[in-house]
Design a binder for these strands. Structure first.
Lengths: 335, 335
DNA sequence: CCGGCTCCTGAGAGCGCTCTCACACTGAGA
DNA sequence: TCTCAGTGTGAGAGCGCTCTCAGGAGCCGG
């Protein structure tokens, strides 16, 4: 009665196929079963439109087949138009789909959402967690590590919790950008650095410094927060500090775009007077005026790798603690 | 033994608090219980670090507290930098967080992922579904409606399945843009329309036409796919078709940016020779040269409303089938 | 022809929770 | 003193699945 109204269960399939519940379960899970009962069960499943109940399965297997992707809900990076968020999501989702896992998106803005995430993870609502683009010494990695759930970060987490992570070669990319400027004969190379509480900000500045270190050039630094506006402000300040600069390396394309605007406003020609190099190779980089020379980072691949690693962890397989993906200098007209 | 090793359960809390499982359940769910047992249970919960098992709860309540957001995984709209994706996600997630629901993100690219989504929904893996930015007559809405799960769409779904949706006033916004151009004395107003298999593309073109209808002006139309490149190509074609045009309304900011590039390449000054109006008011619109006059649509609010509606549906409350959010003309320098 | 082996199958015991139901207890009213 | 609400509580029956375990069927060699 009430049963008939609901969705078909293992039992109803078993009854229809004339076998036991256990046999149906075996068929559904691909275990050994004779061909005849296999066929009977499959037919019953089709006829009834049976779909296994996920909660019931989770209850006994302790697997949820859910992977959480935690993103800090800050305007600057995730929701700016540098495409980081969609790119990572895309890569992650691609790999999870192949593994038949679902993606739970958690935006970690307030302290309340932090607590909510912790609770959700503690309740074993998900099998693993992907932590992206953390700021400063976020307490979340440590909290999750304590709960004892597989966690993979995007970029080396600041703070003392050692967690596996997937990052890009920020240092090498920044250094390559600066070397390109040096090779082109630029002598006064400034940088617009990113926030110094994020790895991408820190390492790209370090790369700039290391490349300059060999040469006799001194470093000229302004700090932005990866946004276009901050890049514009930083460029103005740089121009103030050193009107004679002839190149600038911005730690993000958005900041590079800001620099381009500030330079134009100041009457400097790019690349003639000042060469500009960005970082990210966002969709917009091809369309700036002039088109932006920049360091490409494989955003989608970051997502893919993170997902692969966490799946391995969930499966109990060993992984290497650190994955660093290559960056690549893309030459266009701005430098 | 094996029990002691695992996470605390309702039973262990009950044992520690000296009450029955049912009483603990009542405390956890906020039902009537005497103060003394209330206190005892709370203490036991704290001491044990008890967190309810989500799967077990779902199994009996039939609620998963999960809402799916389905996005078509196409490069043009979702993963272009028009911020639609992050904006909607942000709005949705904000409302879901308040309701203590989790967001499951499903990217619907291939036919395989369509099937996977259907399966997942059929398994009652989620309580409700949000369908965003569909193309053409996607079979998904109909399929989900058949399964009988709460569904809310972004924009009126094409095809015959009537589903509740949250849209923006594309028609009014486009008309307002064109009227602004008309009021400014422009006489030959072209449009770069969006894809004609999406509501946003269709309605914005209709708005353009209706505004022009009253005047004696004729319509000049080129079609793009919301991307910058397509906008550039469309603008070139428009200039070819009618070199004397003095205004263009683009159905997206990205296409407007493309138009700006094409116009500059053709030696036209904006807004002096040709006025340009976009649609979306993306982050980049403030930074184009000249800054883009555009029609703002409340992307985040779309997400919020969609989430609110689906939650109401899940709760069994009635909702209105159609929600249309206002658009607003934002005047900057391009028109 | 029988013991022993392999292989498939069904019975049944949970997984951790909610929720109905009956019961105990209190206090008001008759 | 007895009845009748009204309230809080515990026992127990599931929710739909997996997985262990024991039994039965089929086959081999001795």
């Amino acid at each position: 009665m009430s049963r008939a109204a609901g969705r078909p269960t293992l039992d109803s399939v078993a009854a229809r196929a004339g076998v036991s519940r256990a046999t149906v379960s075996r068929v559904v899970n691909g275990l050994a079963v004779t061909e005849s009962s296999q066929a009977a069960v499959r037919r019953a499943i089709d006829e009834l439109g049976y779909v296994p109940n996920h909660a019931a399965r989770t209850l006994v297997t302790q697997r949820t087949d859910l992977i959480a992707l935690v993103l800090p809900e800050t305007t600057d990076r995730v929701f700016s138009d540098d495409q980081f968020f969609p790119g990572v999501v895309n890569g992650v989702s691609q790999v999870l789909e192949q593994a038949d896992k679902q993606l739970v998106l958690m935006l970690a803005g307030s302290a309340a959402s932090h607590a909510r995430i912790e609770r959700s993870v503690a309740a074993r609502h998900v099998d693993g967690v992907l932590l992206a683009s953390l700021h400063g010494a976020d307490p979340l990695p440590a909290a999750l590590a304590r709960i004892g759930i597989p966690v993979v970060c995007n970029e080396r987490p600041l703070g003392s919790t050692p967690l596996p992570y997937v990052g890009v070669d920020n240092l090498g990319g920044a250094a390559a950008a600066v070397r390109h400027l040096l090779d082109a004969g630029r002598t006064r190379i400034a940088t617009i650095a990113g926030p110094q509480d994020m790895i991408a900000g820190i390492d790209r500045l370090a790369g700039y410094r290391s490349a300059l270190h060999g040469s006799s050039r001194r470093s000229i630094v302004a700090v932005g927060d990866f946004t276009l506006d901050s890049g514009m402000a930083a460029m103005r300040q740089l121009l103030d500090d050193d009107p004679g600069l002839d190149a600038v390396f911005a730690a993000s394309d958005l900041m590079a775009q800001g620099a381009l605007k500030a330079l134009r406003a100041a009457g400097r020609r790019v690349p003639d007077d000042v060469a500009v190099v960005g970082f990210d190779d966002t969709a917009g980089a091809r369309h700036t005026d002039p088109p932006l020379t920049t360091v490409r980072q494989p955003i989608r691949e970051i997502g893919r790798q993170m997902a692969r690693q966490v799946l391995r962890l969930v499966a109990g397989d060993p992984i290497e603690a650190t994955t660093t993906l290559p960056t690549e200098l893309v030459l266009r007209q701005s430098a």
